[in-house]
Amino acid sequence: MLKLVGSFITVLTSTWLGFHLAMQVRQRPKQIRQLLTAFSLLRSEIQYGNRPLFEICKLISVREIDKIADIFRFSYEELQKNEGDTTYHCFHKAIRQVWGQTSLKGTEKEIFLDLCSVLGRSDRLDQIQHIDRAKEQLQVVEEKARLEQEQYEKMFRTMGVLGGVLVVILLY
């Protein structure tokens, strides 16, 4: 009886692990797309608006959802504190805080940080160019992530269940 309960728990856990990994893989292209829309917003704000950067961050955090909004909200708070840190520093802090909770990986982080090192430091045209470049790079990454999703999402789910069953059979 105890064995049965134990094996049931094992299968359940490994199944959950597989589904979790699959969700991670599925969320990544979605979140990259959200990041892309956030960049578009940023671009139009810089091009046509006349607001300071922290207000733009606040606006984006209201418009976006989920973790991406969190990144911009944290950046807004950091920028608002005005502790004498550079803009890059504020964004870096916010990203470091939120990144662990997202499904995003190192490539997107690099792109984002590259962009942040330029924000608020040069003229409008230059910033817009940089945003465009970052968007192009993100699109490439998104394409890659979507291919990865197609390939691995189902695999992780099935492997979770099968792995659990295998462990149970081995130890029973």
Partner: peptide
């Protein structure tokens, strides 16, 4: 189970 895992990993 090993045969199933083998098939799936091969497909992927």
């Amino acid at each position: 189970i090993v045969a199933m895992i083998h098939t799936i990993l091969k497909q992927m």
